[in-house]
Nucleic acid binder design. Sequence first.
DNA 1: GTCTATAGTCGGATAGAC
DNA 2: GTCTATCCGACTATAGAC
Lengths: 229, 229
Amino acid sequence: MTRQRRSDAESGARQKLIDAGIILFGLHGYEATSTRSLAAAAGVNLAAIPYHFGGKEGLYRAVASHIVDARNAVLGPYFERIRSLCADPAAGRDTLVSALRAMIQALAADTLGTSQGRDASQIMIQEQIALTPAFDLFYEGFFCTALDAWTGLVARLTGRDAGHPDTRLRALALLGQIVIFRVGAFTVLRHLGWQRFTPEAVESIAEICIEQIEASLAPAAAASPGGAS
Amino acid sequence: MTRQRRSDAESGARQKLIDAGIILFGLHGYEATSTRSLAAAAGVNLAAIPYHFGGKEGLYRAVASHIVDARNAVLGPYFERIRSLCADPAAGRDTLVSALRAMIQALAADTLGTSQGRDASQIMIQEQIALTPAFDLFYEGFFCTALDAWTGLVARLTGRDAGHPDTRLRALALLGQIVIFRVGAFTVLRHLGWQRFTPEAVESIAEICIEQIEASLAPAAAASPGGAS
DNA sequence: GTCTATAGTCGGATAGAC
DNA sequence: GTCTATCCGACTATAGAC
């Protein structure tokens, strides 16, 4: 498995274009990224894009697919653990909470602390507002399974029905506590007077989010007011 | 004040272009929005853009300025009330919490429920990831004062120092609970199997966010663990 | 103030040599 | 597989008639 078994893999132009695409598509979005800038950043010829990917859109799909695989490789295990714990009726609350902690910490460290995680999440954010033909790839390949696992965990910890819309809304809102730091990074950094998220800052953010999420999950299988719908 | 006192206000081409810009810049971003599509959507001649605004960038700045004014007109009073309550040492917790509820409800109703609020927030989201020269206009004109008021309220309700970075992080995270529904609207709607946010759904979201925010603010002026930095 | 016509540039894709 | 040269359409902005 040293190579991806591709007929045209000898020079690495494919991979160089994908790497450049992760950066440039994330920075400027699909439409505003030119094939010339992609070829220049990758150090390959312009004609390599139609040759290897059939065109700009093909390159974008390849970038999207690569990102989904890479994020699943990094974060998949945490969601997989959550899913298996939720399927186990014997799993205790402490075990569930520790899986929650691990997931939030991994998510914060990856999307805020690593350059690969930052670049990948940047394209996922672009996809949220632009809605290119690759949205399904992101949703089916990553968001759907991740959100299902997260919702299941929130349902289990609060004694709610994972299928009820209110439970999904609760889970999404709680996830927003960490997502805002990535989506609004420029505003957040400016409001804090920071230049970037240091490793210590990332740890603080994760810790604060975990604490506040746990506080919201505390009223577990109690009265369950149910929301407002 | 029937007119904005502009020397070139007779035909309304300026306003029609700004209205079109709010929609199109929000949908596709600054770079990917063409002057042709703007002129067509506004029903004015292409040359009207350089004439009235000096060019595409001038139109974008006018759009940004218009959005800041409009959002301040809608949401400013809520932040103003929070600010004045925080400055009043006699304000009770119930009063503060009711101001919090009102603000979250107004924010949800505006950004999720009204077309004007949706369009305006869409450009603010674009600005978060693209970082055009108009970012300062948004930050100075809206985000900064709004976040300061919100942080002050969270500080007051939790007995923390509003100037401490951890308090700002806490406030930002809590705000993320409502922001995620706007930023990730497509993913949220798809995950819920919804076509759009109905008024009832917006109410549910606001109610759930308020409840979970209050739960995180509950451990008020108690031990105050302080976070992890 | 509004229009047509056009300049000058940049976009993605292709043909064909090597 | 990689390159150069090129087509053709779309872009922003301007000139000048009305």
